[in-house]
């Protein structure tokens, strides 16, 4: 089997300022499937085509932002090995018992030098995507409810010490660097895009003085047409849109950035090139960051660099 180790982004837990307003947004506007609520008051969602019980969890808090981002790894042995490897590398890890999140197995939690809490897990109940495994239809009714992305694709996180974060992902967790934007002096990376498979990114980071900040969680759309439809639905519901619809130079992905009702940015994303682990990293100089962000407009939108939660 070629794809081992870390398989994919598995869950994000995001803080919202008003729970029920946010549930209505994520369920009826973004079109996620609500799959449960727990004793802590957290609400669990998945995208319609995801098979695991949950991928996006919200909880009410007095500040916006992200609590943690988790990756699914191949199996229990892989989880234990990553735990040992992270400790050997010098990071403290913590075990969160199975069941602390609904339908989710034991998690290994650690904090990056950027201030972000990361998790690895090997088990989450497969609830299916509403389509049978035998003679499956290509989609089900849930695809037409709201924006209806097909999966949690990646996150972009802002914080300090991006060079150290890159080392942890590439030297311990088996990711590779797909693209990067250099700092203005060209001596370091201002932003990095990391993949654990053949997606153009599974997680990305940008250098930022405040730790632990969320730039966006990204949701995958099936087509450019679906991205445009997402933009229509955003306007119909007066969602605050940041950038797009447009195409990124970095990743080549098509995009809309917008904000949830608490000011957490999210993305409806589609496309991107198809990297392999042996490919050379692609580099953008800082003076071309505008094209990297918004290729048609060649514009380094001010909010991209300065608005986070």
């Amino acid at each position: 089997m070629a794809l081992t180790g870390v398989l994919r982004p598995g869950h994000a837990q995001v803080r919202v300022l008003n729970l029920e307003e946010s549930v209505r947004f994520y369920r009826d506007v973004l079109g996620l499937v609500e799959t449960g609520r727990d004793a802590q008051g957290r609400v669990y969602f998945k995208c319609w085509d995801e098979r695991d019980h949950n991928s996006y969890v919200i909880r009410e808090a007095d500040r916006a932002g992200i609590d943690f981002f988790g990756f699914r790894v191949l199996d229990k042995a892989t989880l234990d090995k990553f735990d040992a490897d992270l400790r050997a590398y010098g990071l403290a890890t913590e075990r969160i018992p199975a069941g602390e999140m609904l339908e989710t197995g034991e998690r290994v939690r650690f904090t990056l030098p950027s201030g972000h809490v990361m998790e690895l897990f090997a088990d989450k109940t497969k609830v299916g995507n509403g389509i049978p495994l035998v003679n499956p239809a290509p989609w089900c009714k849930a695809r037409d409810h709201g924006i209806a992305p097909i999966r949690l694709d990646h996150a972009l996180l802002y914080g300090p010490n991006v060079a150290e974060v890159q080392k942890i992902f590439t030297e311990v967790l088996g990711f590779y660097l797909v693209e990067r934007v250099l700092t203005p002096d060209g001596n370091a990376n201002a932003a990095i895009w990391l993949s654990c498979g053949q997606k153009v990114h599974d997680i990305a980071f940008a250098e930022y003085p405040e730790p632990g900040k969320l730039h966006h969680c990204s949701f995958l759309m099936e087509s450019w047409d679906q991205v445009l439809r997402a933009g229509d639905i955003m306007s119909m519901n007066q969602v605050a849109v940041d950038i797009g619809p447009t195409r990124h130079g970095v990743t080549r992905g098509c995009t809309i950035y917008a904000w949830d009702p608490s000011g957490n940015r999210f993305e409806t994303f589609m496309g991107g090139h198809l990297p392999y682990p042996d490919y050379e990293t692609m580099t953008w100089t800082f003076d071309n960051f505008g094209q990297g962000l918004d290729y048609p407009q060649r514009k380094l939108h001010e909010t991209f660099l300065s608005v986070v939660s």
């Binding site: 300022l17 007095d62 500040r63 932002g65 009702p261 608490s262 957490n264 608005v307």
Partner: peptide, 26 residues
């Protein structure tokens, strides 16, 4: 910025007048 009370870039000081508010990120 985010227009949802989460990012903080639109911070103002109300020097005169009355108003109501919705939840803002602490």
């Amino acid at each position: 910025g985010c227009r949802g009370g989460g990012c903080g870039v639109c911070k103002v000081e109300i020097t005169e007048g009355e108003f109501s508010t919705r939840t803002m990120s602490r």
